[in-house]
Amino acid sequence: MVKELEETVNVPVVHICTIVPISLTVGANRIVPAVAIPHPLGNPTLQSAEEKELRRSLVEKALQALTTEVNEQTQF
C-alpha cells in the first residue's frame, strides 16, 4: 500500500509500523518503527497524558521522515 500510494499520489509516504522487516521487504521508503502490534501508537500501561506524549513523538518522527530527503529505504 505504501509503495502504491507513493507512486499514485506522487507525494512522500511514511509507514508507521511495528514489524519493520516486513516493511523493508515490501519496499517502503520511509519507515518509523512503532510500539506494538495491537497499539502501534500507544502504550496502555502509561497514564493517558504520557501515552499521548509518546504518540506525539512518533507522529513527530513521521513528519520528520516526510520532510527528510531520502534516496533509499530509510528507517527513522
Partner: peptide, 20 residues
C-alpha cells in the same frame, strides 16, 4: 491503495502517513 491514491490525488495532499 491504487484506488485510494486516485482519490487523494484530487485533494492536493503533500504527504501521507500510513499506519499498520
Amino acid at each position: 491503495a491504487h484506488a485510494i491514491g486516485l482519490e487523494l490525488s484530487e485533494e492536493n495532499i503533500d504527504g501521507i502517513i500510513l499506519t499498520s
